[in-house]
């Protein structure tokens, strides 16, 4: 399995700055305060599992519109040894020597524009009438909100809306420097249509088959066929696409 977590160039630049500080011109706080668009950080996320990137350019090699899986994978043979080279095996508690083996398992995930920031719950402008106090008590009935807040009176302490949160934003489909609405263009009869702009999340996944395999090394066996396979893709691409918009406020107590 190979996986990549690539941060955007902005983060890499920040990292590089630490190495070459002597050659850079210092910028004081006053100047920085005038800079716009500096809130948060943007990242791109790439995750590849058992797929080929021959030249190491970070791009998955596509063959006949599909991922090119690693050698020995994707053979579609689920009932004879040896096992394929790409598989994921799960073993549950009290199920000794019984492995749920996912066979011909490979895929790729791309998230190009994910924005991380810090913030306060007030930014969500949620309706206070939706409050459910039962979610904020522990098993003994103690209020967990902390910061002096009483679960029955949210205005106490720092106030509920002043609780901090990690904010994750996805602004939607991105194309050529702008965020736009995705589209679908019907094809002519027999050719199928094409979706465009559904690129907030792009994901392709193949699990060719699955079965229970037995023994201490059942995870490495391929004897008992398959009862189910799963594929995530697009009619015109190895990647299924989705348009995602919104903000997630992640907080805890």
């Amino acid at each position: 399995m190979r996986s990549f977590l690539l941060l955007s160039s902005s983060i890499l630049s920040l990292t590089a700055c630490g190495l070459c500080r002597a050659d850079m011109k210092p910028v004081d706080d006053l100047v920085l305060q005038g800079v716009t668009g500096q809130s948060g950080i943007a990242i791109g996320l790439e995750l590849d599992i058992n797929v080929v990137d021959i030249n190491g350019d970070g791009l998955v090699d596509i063959n006949n519109g599909q991922f090119q899986q690693v050698t020995g994978c994707g053979l579609g043979n689920f009932d004879s040894s040896p096992a394929g080279t790409c598989r994921l095996a799960l073993n549950f508690a009290n199920r000794a020597n019984e492995w749920l083996v996912l066979k011909d398992f490979y895929g790729s995930l791309r998230i190009d524009n994910l924005y991380l920031d810090g913030g306060y719950l007030s930014a969500a402008d949620s309706d206070p009438a939706t409050y459910d106090s039962s979610k904020f008590f522990d098993s003994s009935g103690n209020c967990l909100l902390g910061n002096g807040i009483d679960c029955s009176d949210l205005s106490t302490g720092v106030g509920f809306e002043n609780l901090p949160a990690m904010v994750v934003r996805m602004p939607g489909s991105y194309s050529g420097g702008a965020f736009t609405d995705p589209t679908y263009t019907p094809g002519s009869p027999g050719t199928g249509g094409v979706s465009s702009g559904y690129d907030s999340i792009r994901m392709g996944l193949t699990i060719g088959g699955a079965s229970i395999e037995y023994g201490a090394t059942g995870y490495a066996q391929n004897n008992l066929g398959s009862f189910l396979g799963i594929s995530i893709a697009d009619n015109n691409s190895a990647y299924a696409g989705a348009d995602v918009r919104g903000s997630a406020y992640v907080f805890g107590f």
């Binding site: 522990d138 679908y184 396979g229 995530i232 919104g246 903000s247 406020y249």
Partner: peptide, 25 residues
């Protein structure tokens, strides 16, 4: 003790041509 995730102004739409497929034997 817990992790809370609030979702604000949220929308998710998979492309009309993109799919999840369950493959039979």
């Amino acid at each position: 003790a817990g992790i809370a995730v609030a979702l604000d102004d949220f929308r998710f739409a998979m492309a009309p041509t993109s799919y999840i497929e369950l493959t039979g034997s």
